[in-house]
């Protein structure tokens, strides 16, 4: 009796947020799907059914091909870079050096900054100007006689987006470090000692003991960083504005919808983004839910 009343109360208490989520998330997803299947172009809604034309046209759209290429490059550089750098910093901090707390905060701080601020600062650092107007990192390289390092950063052809990924790595590698550090700390010291007694070198210990045990952490990091890179928008806009060489699906979606009034096409890009993020996130959520209920 009491239990039933408790259950009833909890449902009542949670229902406002359930209703809100149903309307404002799932309802709008359904609406976007509807718009993406329509011919809506211009300010007035036009729900004429267009089959999958918006999607089909996107895949033959040269601009969308640029977007896919850029997203792949960005994701690759950003995810691999953050994980490698984050793991390296975690291992360094795990050596029990003095002032660990200080360095830990230092590496974590960039995460507290918004992408816009990061973008503005890196815009200055990665100034591609040449000759007398040289500045930022290129000026530093020039003063240190490291002229071979001077480059065009985000204005490099095709690979410019990788320079934006550098700024993102700067921002997120500290977070990856924190994930790995927590993982390293949870590995019992006995395992390491046992390996040492068996004559394993440090490298072997990391390769065959630490890394396999850290696999769940790596998976989490992959997914968190991966879905962030699919949605990237603000960082690119802050560094380089909305320009085609550094175009990604989110920027195309914004421009085609709000500047060009192609609502149908914009909604189709939005749905494709949702699907690509869902492919990463849904298995992860299922996996976490399963392990949490087991625990």
């Amino acid at each position: 009796m009491f239990k039933d009343k408790d259950r009833y109360l909890s449902i009542v208490l949670i229902s406002p947020s359930i209703i809100a989520v149903l309307i404002f998330i799932y309802g709008f997803i359904a609406w976007s799907v509807r718009v993406s299947l329509s011919e809506w172009k211009g300010l007035t809604p036009d729900y004429t059914f267009a089959k999958l034309n918006n999607y089909i046209n996107l895949f033959s759209d040269p601009r969308f091909q640029v977007d896919i290429r850029n997203t792949l490059i960005f994701t690759g550089v950003f995810v691999v870079g953050s994980i490698v750098l984050g793991f390296f910093m975690a291992v360094m901090l795990d050596q029990g050096l003095k002032g660990e707390g200080f360095f830990r905060s230092l590496f974590l701080f960039p995460m507290a900054i918004s992408y816009i601020v990061t973008g503005v600062v890196w815009r200055w650092l990665m100034n591609p100007a040449e000759g007398d107007r040289i500045s930022g990192l290129n000026l530093l390289f020039s003063n240190l006689n490291l002229d071979f390092l001077i480059n065009k950063w985000h204005t490099t052809e095709t690979w410019g987006i990788a320079a934006i990924a550098l700024a993102a790595i700067w921002q997120m590698s500290g977070y990856t470090m924190a994930l790995y550090l927590a993982g390293l700390r949870s590995i019992p010291i006995e395992l390491r000692e046992a390996a040492q007694i068996d004559g394993a070198t440090e490298l072997q210990i990391y390769r065959h003991i630490m890394l396999p045990l850290l696999a769940p952490v790596t998976l989490s990091a992959l997914i968190i960083l991966g879905h962030m890179s699919l949605k990237v928008f603000d960082l690119i806009v802050a560094v380089a504005g909305k320009q085609l060489p550094l175009d990604v699906p989110a920027i195309y979606m914004w421009q085609t919808t709000f500047d060009g009034l192609f609502y149908g096409r914009g909604a189709a890009i939005g749905i494709l983004l949702l699907i690509s993020v869902a492919v990463l996130i849904i298995p992860y959520i299922r996996y976490t839910l399963k392990t949490e209920t087991q625990a």
Binding site: K41, G42, P62, R63, V66, Q243, L244, P245, D247, Q255, T256, D259, G260, L261, F262
Partner: peptide, 13 residues
Amino acid sequence: DSWKSEIDTALGL
């Protein structure tokens, strides 16, 4: 707006 944004994209490419 629609025409202009298509021209802008073509120019970018």
